[in-house]
Design a binder for these strands. Structure first.
Lengths: 246, 246
DNA sequence: ATAATAGTGTCTCTCAGACACTATGAG
DNA sequence: CTCATAGTGTCTGAGAGACACTATTAT
């Protein structure tokens, strides 16, 4: 069969939706915006928008990320261009059920972004129209997100949970310089479990290339001053960090 | 920002492309078809086609799979509806670079299918227009696939290679009843390495729920008769099978 | 002083990798 | 017989989990 006949094909709208995850006060949170129009008017939804003509999918996701958060994305392999102001961005999955939008046929290419805590939502500058919400309460049945965004969020959270097992991606949730304890609290928040601080310390400092000493110390967590580290070049964790009770 | 304005959006064509993998005579192979029209006329490409109006993305991929191979797909969680005639099918990634098709804006939702060896290509019944090719030679630079299909194939192969580490997906390459040695040869072909038969045997038979005895034995590999097994209910392998030299 | 967090050392148990050895068929 | 593959047992070393213990700050 020939791949297609360019003169006859059904037209689709293509959008990108973003699952932006961060860790705020010991909880995994995601960015949601309030819909101003029908359908699902007034309901919370994931940020997103059209892919423009001549725009690549990843570029559209990066543009939306800047518009919604001010965060500049960098590709998985590259280091952050501006230290402390970069976010990890990767394609998640594509959602195209025929009736997922009641008005027309829309295919959405969802992307997953991981960011440190710093930025406050600034969609329209209105705190009532955008906020960080704990994923725990969004995935409950109380007030579901618009469209199929609940499913997209669940898929994004599961991707993040599994990927920090075997990669250094958890450092994307941290500021440029961070302590072992802060990194451990990221794992604990994302997985929702408690990890042994001693074993965690031995594991991450003993994996070559995972962490590199940044030189200083900090007491911002209280207690004995902790060494500061930067993310090392190693992107693959072998052997992986083990998620308890799986 | 509002997700979109339904009156003004650039139109896209949406297709599905298939990376169909199987193991033939100790080599990981993929299904390719010869293009009959411009662009890339006469070049080999991945099978694929338009998503129809009112058709879900996964349904379009399953339809293309039946058209190209006669294989019926089943969802990851479910057992094969017809024993021996099912293939694993899952979404891989979406490719939408603006110039990936010179004629118009096409977004392709690539899918990955894993199938046992049995079927012969039957696209148009013409052996010259469809064939199983070892991925090794397709990923070399000799005669690249049309469009960005070389990249799609590489991504699909990498997905398969990593996923059989921590899941029971390798059984999707096997007939409904298979021996431990046949399963081992699947791992060896997909990873391109040699595995110790004794340690492999101990690992897979010692993992609860991975394999269930089917009752009989076979000597189709020569040597001492081997027990036949079916894939068990366990889909997640914990601890995972380790890929050597990583 | 106490509380809090950082960091080290030590024990045990599981498991991967290496490999000797036995079992059972085909020729 | 030989050869091929199936299957079991045993040793060793790496590493995860549990947890005692010390170190260094704030209050």
């Amino acid at each position: 069969m020939s791949p297609y006949d360019p003169s006859a094909f059904p037209p689709f709208a293509v959008t990108v939706d973003l699952v932006v995850l961060t860790v705020r006060s010991h909880a995994l949170c995601t960015l949601i915006v309030r819909r101003g129009e029908q359908p699902y008017q007034g309901r919370w939804a994931l940020p997103g928008g059209f892919v423009r003509e001549g725009e690549d999918l990843g570029a559209a996701a990066a543009r939306e990320l800047v518009e919604e958060t001010g965060l500049r994305a960098h590709d998985p392999g590259d280091p952050p261009p501006l230290p402390g102001n970069g976010a990890h961005l990767e394609q998640l999955a594509t959602y195209g059920a025929p009736a997922r939008d009641p008005r027309m046929r829309v295919v959405s290419v969802a992307h997953l972004a991981l960011a440190p805590d710093l930025p406050a939502p600034r969609a329209g500058g209105d705190a009532n129209s955008a906020r960080w919400a704990p994923v725990e309460e969004l995935l409950g049945e109380a007030e579901p997100l618009a469209f199929d965004h609940g499913q997209i969020l669940a898929d994004g959270v599961e991707r993040a949970r599994s990927k920090i097992e075997y990669s250094s991606l958890a450092t994307a949730f941290c500021p440029p310089e961070f302590t072992v304890g802060e990194l451990r609290r990221v794992y604990e928040a994302v997985w929702g479990v408690a990890l042994d601080p001693r074993n965690f310390h031995r594991k991450v400092t003993g994996t070559p290339g995972f962490l590199v000493p940044a030189g200083g110390t900090t007491t911002r967590q209280g207690g004995r001053p902790a060494q500061l580290f930067r993310a090392g070049g190693a992107t693959l964790l072998n052997p992986p960090m083990l998620r308890p009770e799986v």
